[in-house]
Design a protein around this nucleic acid. Structure first.
Length: 266
DNA sequence: AGATTCGGCGT
DNA sequence: ACGCCGAATCT
């Protein structure tokens, strides 16, 4: 009997495995079926099935089931939805990441979808121009950023950054993943200093005491040591950039010379 | 009964 | 052409 290979799948949470089985007879001989296995061993044979199970914890919007890789080029192609996404872009051009419907966060082992109500006939349009400038945000909205990965033009997913030791998150999600996104967002969205949650009350009961203009992390201290480490990183990055530019420059010069000798025009 | 496998519908 | 899933077949 042929051994079936279950390989790790880096695009999914740790412990998930992927398997490809080639059809060996029938009209579809030679084609293949792809299966995924959860860390507990449950088998999944389609993207909808996988999506139902993972709920909102992983956005499979750009997950390619056949290859098992994230393909940032692929948005869900729903004509109606595409228009909605364009309209819902913020001023800064941030994409609408809310691809999947929210999932009821209960202890039930069966994920139950939430009914999304988008029209509320009783509502009045806000007339207070003072407050209209700042749009309301969901508490702990940073959790939506969980699992986001940057990728280069070859659509390969880039390694994530490491966070300085000692940073601690506040709120319902303690993953480094969300923490990094929250801090990065805070740095981008405001020029105000980032201090983290300075009140002790916020750590005990963030749902009530959270300072919403600060990221979901505990107050932290930046030491001279931190600064020296960061300066070293910047120095090293500049060095490798310099080397890369130098190598590129030499390559271009060589090519230009070759073309000149062959009589090409620029 | 559960796992495996291919057919075939719908897009 | 392919994703998804029903159901026949296998263990």
């Amino acid at each position: 009997m042929m051994e079936k290979k279950r390989t790790d799948c880096p695009a999914l949470p740790p412990g998930w495995k992927k398997e490809e089985v080639i059809r060996k007879s029938g009209l579809s001989a030679g084609k293949s079926d792809v299966y995924y296995y959860s860390p507990s061993g449950k088998k999944f044979r389609s993207k909808p099935q996988l999506s139902r199970y993972l709920g909102n914890s992983v956005d499979l919007g750009c997950f390619d089931f056949r290859t098992g890789k994230m393909m940032p080029g692929k948005l869900q192609k729903n004509k109606q939805r595409l228009r909605h996404d364009l309209l819902s872009l913020g001023k800064g051009g941030k994409p609408d990441l809310n691809t999947a419907l929210p999932i009821r966060q209960t202890a039930s082992i069966f994920k139950q979808p939430v009914t999304k109500v988008t029209s509320h006939p009783g509502n009045k349009v806000k007339t207070d121009l003072q407050r209209a400038s700042e749009q309301p945000r969901q508490l702990f909205w940073e959790r939506r950023l969980k699992g986001l990965r940057s990728s280069d033009i070859t659509e390969e997913v880039l390694r994530t950054m490491d966070l300085p030791k000692g940073l601690q998150s506040v709120g319902p999600d303690s993953s480094d993943d969300t923490l990094l996104s929250a801090i990065a967002s805070a740095l981008h969205m405001s020029s105000a200093p980032i201090t983290g949650q300075t009140s002790v009350a916020a750590e005990k009961n963030p749902a009530i005491w959270l300072n919403t203009s600060q990221p979901l992390c505990k107050a932290f201290a930046v030491t001279d040591e931190h600064i020296r480490e960061q300066e070293l990183k910047v120095y090293q990055a500049r060095r490798s950039l310099e080397d890369a530019l130098m190598a590129d420059g030499l390559a271009r010069a060589a090519e230009n010379t070759r073309e000149l000798l062959q009589g090409k025009t620029a």
